Amino acid sequence: MNKIFLALALLLAAGFAVAYWKMGGFKAPVITLETTAKPYYLAGRYYEGPANDEAFGNLTRDAYQYRKDGKLRGDFGNIFYNSPESSRDAAKVFVGVVVADTTSQTLPTNYRYRTFAAGQRVVHARVDASFLVAPDKLYTGIKEYAAANKLTLQNIYLERFPDKGEPEVLAVVK
């Protein structure tokens, strides 16, 4: 009986490892120090409160639904105005869709534009992985890169999760 449980446990562990590998979980992020060449525009809504609150989840679902329905064209994205560690308890985030410009689309009701300005020094992290495993890898990579290069982060982060291509995070450097 113990051998059966051991075999099942090993089979499950192997299955999880393969799934994690397929999602890009073993890939390392590419981290660079850059100056943003162009602004990023987000169409969305601001949220402040616990990250596990239903209201935050609703804003995220709304943004996905607007993209799915074709009401907004672009990539899902957020601008966090506090560190990822503290955002679990008190997120300050603009949730929405990264759009090409502020003139070619009509915004859904209650949506506004925010700009992540050009000319900012940022730590840019990207990874060829699923959006399910990418955020942890990206934020960990940014934190390690900043520490190794003695950079101070301003705790403003742009997240972009394209349907095709690499998820990315840009962290503003002081």
Results as ranks from 00 to 15, higher is better:
83 S>H: 08
60 T>S: 12
93 V>R: 03
9 A>E: 08
122 V>C: 11
37 A>C: 04
137 K>E: 05
123 V>N: 10
99 V>H: 03
43 A>N: 02
8 L>C: 15
144 E>H: 08
65 Q>T: 13
45 R>G: 08
35 T>F: 06
27 K>S: 13
81 Y>D: 01
89 D>F: 03
54 E>T: 11
132 L>P: 01
38 K>H: 14
101 D>P: 03
13 A>W: 01
71 K>A: 13
14 A>Y: 06
45 R>K: 15
81 Y>M: 05
29 P>I: 00
96 G>R: 03
52 N>I: 01
142 I>D: 07
56 F>E: 06
51 A>K: 07
130 S>H: 09
130 S>R: 03
17 A>I: 07
120 Q>Y: 04
145 Y>T: 08
20 Y>A: 12
62 D>H: 04
54 E>H: 11
19 A>I: 08
53 D>F: 02
50 P>K: 13
68 K>P: 00
79 I>K: 07
37 A>Y: 03
47 Y>N: 11
126 R>L: 05
121 R>K: 15
112 R>N: 14
85 E>D: 15
145 Y>Q: 04
82 N>P: 04
100 A>S: 12
36 T>I: 09
68 K>G: 05
29 P>M: 00
134 A>L: 09
129 A>N: 09
72 L>K: 06
136 D>P: 01
105 Q>F: 06
72 L>I: 09
108 P>E: 04
38 K>F: 13
117 A>T: 12
86 S>G: 00
25 G>S: 04
13 A>H: 05
74 G>N: 08
139 Y>D: 06
76 F>D: 04
82 N>V: 01
40 Y>I: 14
54 E>M: 12
57 G>E: 05
103 T>P: 04
90 A>Y: 14
117 A>S: 14
50 P>C: 05
48 E>V: 07
31 I>G: 06
114 R>T: 14
24 G>F: 02
77 G>K: 04
78 N>A: 13
125 A>D: 06
107 L>E: 12
94 F>S: 02
125 A>W: 09
97 V>Q: 05
104 S>P: 10
128 D>R: 14
130 S>P: 04
21 W>E: 11
84 P>D: 00
132 L>A: 11
54 E>Y: 07
43 A>C: 03
115 T>A: 09
39 P>H: 05
98 V>I: 12
26 F>T: 15
134 A>V: 05
5 F>V: 13
135 P>Y: 01
119 G>V: 10
138 L>W: 00
99 V>L: 01
135 P>Q: 01
75 D>F: 07
124 H>Q: 09
117 A>N: 09
114 R>P: 00
67 R>W: 01
79 I>A: 10
79 I>L: 08
105 Q>Y: 03
40 Y>E: 11
73 R>W: 10
48 E>M: 12
78 N>G: 10
52 N>D: 13
15 G>N: 07
30 V>F: 09
120 Q>W: 04
53 D>C: 02
62 D>A: 13
10 L>E: 06
94 F>M: 01
92 K>N: 11
5 F>S: 07
125 A>P: 03
141 G>H: 00
45 R>V: 10
143 K>R: 15
30 V>K: 12
36 T>V: 10
78 N>W: 02
22 K>L: 13
96 G>K: 03
74 G>P: 01
77 G>C: 06
65 Q>C: 05
60 T>F: 15
85 E>M: 10
105 Q>C: 05
85 E>W: 14
78 N>I: 04
16 F>H: 06
90 A>W: 13
29 P>A: 03
5 F>Y: 15
148 A>T: 08
80 F>L: 09
